[in-house]
Design a protein around this nucleic acid. Structure first.
Lengths: 198, 198, 198, 198
DNA sequence: TATGAATGAGTTTTCATTCAT
DNA sequence: AATGAATGAAAACTCATTCAT
């Protein structure tokens, strides 16, 4: 097993620990045990605990980005493009549903870990600006009402998914919630549709 | 100062610490110093750090509940009632905006602290069921489309606020976001309005 | 309730705590709670925790002494006198069996609490010298073998009771043990009897 | 130094502390200092103070068992076998005399520490049943009176040693006491001897 | 590369005692 | 006499990190 593979093994092991105990309660020892390596072994691959967590976060973001970017190039209709994006997001939630808690955890830690902060902010702003762009195109194409505030709707769409992700960690009604996110996001989109498109 | 007053003083002091450092980075010592009491003094009122955090959370929820319940009795229009609720929620976000990170922190800890979990779950479910009820009334009054899924829209409305709250901790565009939450929530409501009410 | 009565109430309450938790694990708070008074109330009657424990110990010793001294004046036969003493001791064990653990506890603490040490030593030596005297009388009266070492047998008789008391706290066969103590102590006495008295 | 050796070194160091200060007054810090390691170093080998104390107790019992089991296989005479056992016990008391207080301490803690309780109980019952067996053999061989209660005498013999051990911690007459234990235990045995064997 | 014993500053918690009321 | 909030030194334990092997 080469160094990169070993690194990934450690990250995988760390994720199982993080899912089980949460970021705040996970100890370096837990990662070490789960990895099957020794303490020194893990430290050989990651200089510190924060480094390992960054590794996990990077792996997540990259997985997430892959999913989002699997989308085909802009279709003509902004509405349809958004609809596709939302469904892609739903699939991801269903696949990675267990990971929502982890996202929240990282988020919660981020104000005190500048490197987290920056990564998450970049990621958020990238996604937000993509959505803004699509919505603006929809307004130009007169699919959406001219009074639409693209920034607000973009924030709202992202919020629905993040917020429902949170709800997912609170209630036990796990199965329905990803679909609720799409359903209410779709309602939001209908709410900005020009009458002729309804 | 009687015991209840002292308890509240300690909670108040703890909140200033938590807002400054976050849950994960706050030490019992910090709470002690902020309270102006001695270590034993704080422990006299709270059996453990977790106990104090529960106290803070309880205080939050109760403050929050008060705000929600200040709402006047159901007006005839479900749409208008929801609109009022959303605006109340926005005000709260503006007032308590500094507390959002703290909410997220608590949320993040909740899966591993059963007492948190239960409190937050109760709170979530109470709010969710109130929203469902109003939406159902709207459907009966034919304000809302008969195809509307009240559970989904309720989850979506809550999600928008929670999700935008999260965004608030990520980006620096703090001022606009609470309004974005209302704006996109209103779009969602318009998306379920019967045509004759638009 | 006058001061002495209150003092005794506190001691009684302390005993129930000590029996439940043991000396080492009993806290001043436990005594306070059990007493029904406040912290200051207890401290008004006892200057310190050690003082209260001394109070308990004094009460015990005095109870114990009373039992021992209930014995009638020396009968002619040393053997019979010892037999009576042993039976009295057995009754006490049956009555105060639950207290054996407490004795051991105090004993265990005694090397580090000079005042305990002295009280227990005095008590032990008093009892030991009484036994030595009786045994010596038995030797003079030729009831006991002239080779008998009174010091050793006195230590042995006391040891049987203390040792069986210990066993009582270890095993669960609680009922038989006090009788075992008498039975084996009687065997010891028979072992020093002159043949003509057997 | 491997892990087992280090563990034993820590136990040895702890014993010197315990002998000096007693169980109740010994602090983890004392064990740490005596061990020459750091706090974390000791905790690496023992999960808690209780764990370390259990380690000490285990070591004791095992040392003790070794001594008992050094005995040669049953000689024909039950009386002589018991006599040998008592003398072995006496030697142990002389060798380990300093440890008696420690035994009492452990005993004193045992009702509140289930793991202690169980170890001590097992040990007691093992020793007791061995004695019962030998005494029963003596009855069958008509060395001992047929009216002898083996359970009682076994409890008595053990009691003498435990009880005299206690006395040892109370008085200062340290040198004589182990011999007193044998002497009075021998008297007890003579007390159950059949006349023809006296 | 890998091991795992060891470090030690930092953290939570305890608890006998005091003292203003 | 009695209250109980408050003290603060001391206790147990944690855990990211280092380093000799």
């Amino acid at each position: 097993m080469n160094s990169d593979e070993r690194r990934q093994k450690i990250i995988d092991a760390a994720i199982t620990v993080l899912l089980d105990k949460g970021v705040a309660a996970s100890r370096m020892n837990d990662f070490v045990e789960a990895s099957g390596l020794s303490k020194g072994g893990v430290y050989h691959h990651f200089d510190s605990k924060e480094d390992l967590l960054i590794g996990v976060l990077e792996y997540f973001m990259q997985e997430f980005i892959v999913i989002i970017q699997l989308e085909e190039p802009p279709v003509s209709s902004a509405y349809q493009q958004l609809e596709q994006l939302l469904h892609a997001h739903e699939s991801m939630m269903l696949d990675l549903g267990r990971y929502t808690q982890l996202f929240i955890d990282f988020l919660s830690q981020s104000p005190y870990l500048p490197r987290f902060q920056q990564m998450i902010r970049n990621h958020y702003e990238l996604f937000h600006s993509q959505l803004v762009e699509i919505i603006q195109r929809g307004i130009q194409r007169q699919e959406f009402l001219p009074t639409t505030n693209p920034e607000a709707i973009a924030a709202g769409l992202m919020g629905v998914f993040d917020g429902v992700g949170i709800a997912l960690t609170i209630t036990q009604n796990k199965i329905e919630f990803p679909h609720y996110a799409v359903e209410s996001a779709m309602a939001m989109l209908r709410g900005i549709l020009n009458d002729e498109f309804r």
